[in-house]
Amino acid sequence: MKNKIKQTSILLFEKKGFTETSIQDIVGELGVTKGTFYYYFSSKEQLLMDIHISYIDELLERQKAIRQEHHSNRTKLERLIALLIADIANHGPSGKVFFREMRHLDRDNAVKVKKKREHFRKNLEEIISEGIAKNEFRSGLEPEMVAFAILGVTNWSYQWFNPLGKISADQLARIYSDLILHGIA
C-alpha cells in the first residue's frame, strides 16, 4: 500500500502539482481512508521527501554500478548519459516531481536531497577528471562545469522528451553523447 500511495501521488503531483494535490485527492484516487495515508506517512511533505530520496538513491546505485565497470571513462560517461535519459523515459513522472517539486521540501529535507544530488554530480566530475588524466578527454576542461552542463542537458529533457515520439531514449542518449563528446563543429 505504501508503494501504491507513492505511485499515485507521483502521478497526481505531476498532473496537478504538489501544492494543488491534497491528501484527500490521494486517498480518493486509491479508495482508502486518510488513516491509511497517515499509517505510512506523517505528512504530505514526508511523502514528497520519500519520493525524492527513493529517486536519487536509485540513481546513485545505478551510477555506482556504472562507475565500477571496467570500461573507459568515455564509455562510463556515455552509459551515464544513457542512464539519465532512460530514467526519464521509464520514470518520467518521478523525474518531473523530483526536479519540479523539490522547492516544497522543508529546509532540512532539501539539504539532504541536495547533498545526494551533489554526490551524483561529484561522481560524474570524477569520471571526467579521470578521463582527462588518461587522455580520453581533452585537457583544459573544467570537470565541474562539464558535469553541470551534462546534467543540465540530460535533466532538462524531462520537460519535453516523449519516449513514444519519433526519437527513442537510446537515440536521444546517442545524440547527447555525440554532442557532449564531439561538439557541433
Rank of each mutant, 00 (worst) to 15 (best):
D50Q: 07
I51R: 00
G183R: 02
L12F: 10
S139R: 12
V111T: 08
V111W: 08
I180R: 00
E136T: 12
N109W: 04
S72E: 01
D57S: 14
I10D: 01
I81D: 00
T75L: 14
S129P: 00
D25Y: 13
Q7E: 15
E125D: 07
Q159G: 00
Y176W: 09
N123K: 07
R174W: 05
S168H: 06
I81C: 02
Q46S: 09
E130R: 15
E14P: 00
L181V: 04
I23Q: 08
R138E: 11
V32C: 13
I175W: 09
V153G: 03
S43T: 04
V111L: 13
Y40T: 02
E126S: 14
Y38E: 01
F120N: 03
F41A: 05
F37T: 00
K96A: 12
A89Y: 11
I10S: 03
Q159S: 07
N155P: 00
A169Q: 08
I10A: 03
I51M: 06
L48H: 05
I53C: 00
R117N: 05
I167R: 15
V27D: 03
G183D: 05
K15C: 03
K122M: 11
K166M: 09
Q159L: 14
V32G: 02
I23K: 08
R107L: 07
A65M: 08
N135F: 11
K166R: 11
A185S: 13
Y55R: 04
I132Y: 07
E45P: 00
G165A: 15
Q171N: 12
A133S: 08
T36C: 12
S42M: 03
Q63F: 13
V113N: 07
L47E: 01
L179E: 01
S9P: 01
Y55S: 09
R74V: 15
I81F: 05
Y158N: 02
K64E: 15
K15D: 09
L77I: 14
T8S: 15
N123S: 13
R100S: 06
E130P: 06
I88N: 04
V111Q: 13
T21H: 05
H70I: 13
R67E: 12
V27C: 06
H182N: 15
G140A: 01
L124A: 11
L141Q: 06
T154G: 05
N162M: 10
T21N: 02
S9L: 05
I184F: 09
H71T: 14
E126C: 10
R107K: 10
M102R: 12
S129L: 10
G92Y: 02
V27Y: 07
I5V: 11
K114R: 13
N123P: 04
F120Y: 14
K16C: 05
G131S: 05
M145D: 04
T154H: 07
I167Y: 15
L179R: 02
I66F: 08
A169K: 09
G140S: 00
I66D: 03
R174D: 13
Q24T: 14
R62E: 13
E29I: 01
G92I: 00
H104F: 10
